[in-house]
Design a binder for these strands. Structure first.
Lengths: 242, 242
DNA sequence: AAAATAGTGTCTATGAGACACTATAGT
DNA sequence: ACTATAGTGTCTCATAGACACTATTTT
């Protein structure tokens, strides 16, 4: 009987091509809140499949990069953005979700404020900043729809479902995490923060207790500065800590 | 200039082997709570890599099955269990997490009660039912350790991190979801349910308000039956609704 | 002055924790 | 009778909502 194989010997002998592999992609839902609606950056596809449909920025994972790293690369290459909040969302792997071949997609979501997202979308002619419409109440797992003014944009692949999952995740994390602050510029008023929360949760919130709750978290700090050019009393600007 | 290609023509021409693909596996953390500790089913590896280490039940995703479907197949084949609660956990894709080749693992977690898990482990000589020890407080993203009596079991790959992520997920979902009930048999006492919660959260809970809170959810129903063979007043047995 | 929103103080309703008490099984 | 845990009633405290009121800006 031959001596037992060492791990080095085993690895040298290992051949990963023995069976068929799926493709793995990363798609990034780049989302913000503005003017009472969730908005996301979509790319108009010029190639099959789903030609002339709209897709999240995405691409295949390279063999030598991590998943979050791939998400950040795609944000840079396809949306021209860096240093934004990124978090893994869910992995979508239905066998027929891509008509080309088996593609498993690890979806991420990224958050910024409207100014950065608008600037990013304006630089690329093939991108649009679409409004997300949420056609369900509660916590269904159904897809959302994307709109540009009054036109519905057809979404490629299962990207409507991915965006629906983002909405659910944002609603779930709003209370106990800092996602609300990621959707606003560095300095913001409490009213702006409340509008972000109200838009995500899709319900009005009590002004007084919202204010109390936010200040009680210790996560924000008054800057002493005030809003400019308001048609009424200017609110104090706050800053998110850490 | 040639006429534009149709989607059918494009798909017929599409060749997925144009670039290197990673492998995709599914690993399932099969977890229960018993006797004041989280427990999980681990498989002792007899092959490289990580020979003689302990691993979650796992395997490669087949080209024609969905991800959750793969998780259920692995639970059946490697643990002999079917019809258990299964939910996607997180996707782990560090380029070097598997020494053989690039393997992206979609991790799931599954929940049952101790009796089913003990029976499943007893049937397979290569499995153990390990106790999980959580060496951090709060919500760190660090790995946990696995123990059999007083012996620490070395964990394969990043499976200690996966189990740590399960602990965090359970802690997060306990309050607003039904995961607590999935860890108990069909009929259970409120004391048992409280012990499950206390074990997951790793802190004592107030008996009175726990009882009130659970009954107020409307998710459980008194059966009229009572515990048997107790050395004290027997508690009423409750049942989880839907 | 009028309009509009910012920001504060106080009352009330609700839910959790604390605690005392009663109930019911085995030994 | 004793012990141990089940289960109930009540008080208190913390927090959210409701509401009234004052403050500060532009027009």
């Amino acid at each position: 009987m031959s001596p037992p194989e060492t791990e080095q010997e085993f690895l040298a002998r290992y051949d990963p091509s023995g069976f068929e592999h799926p493709s793995v992609s990363v798609d990034v839902a780049l989302v913000t809140v503005h003017d009472g609606a969730l908005r996301t950056l979509l790319i108009r596809r010029t190639e099959h499949p789903f030609r002339h449909h709209y897709a999240l920025p995405g691409g295949f994972v390279r063999m030598d990069e991590g998943l979050e790293q791939a998400a950040e690369r795609l944000l840079r290459d396809k949306a021209g953005l860096h240093d934004v909040f990124v978090e893994q969302l869910y992995t979508f792997g239905a066998p027929n979700r891509d008509p080309r071949t088996r593609v498993i997609s690890v979806a991420y979501f990224a958050l910024t404020h409207i100014q950065r997202l608008r600037a990013a979308a304006a630089k690329r002619p093939d991108t649009v900043l679409a409004r997300i419409s949420v056609p369900w109440e509660g916590s269904a797992d159904d897809p959302v729809t994307a709109w540009l003014e009054d036109d519905e944009l057809p979404l490629a692949f299962d990207h409507g479902t991915m965006l629906g999952t983002v909405v659910q995740r944002l609603r779930g994390k709003l209370d106990y995490s800092a996602v609300g602050f990621e959707l606003l510029p560095e300095r913001f008023t409490l009213r702006q923060l409340q509008q972000v929360h109200e838009t995500i949760l899709h319900k009005p919130l009590n002004k007084d207790s919202f204010r109390r709750r936010m200040l009680a978290t210790g996560q924000i700090e008054a800057t002493g500065e005030r809003e400019q050019d308001t048609a009424h009393r200017p609110a104090e600007l706050y800053r998110f800590l850490t």
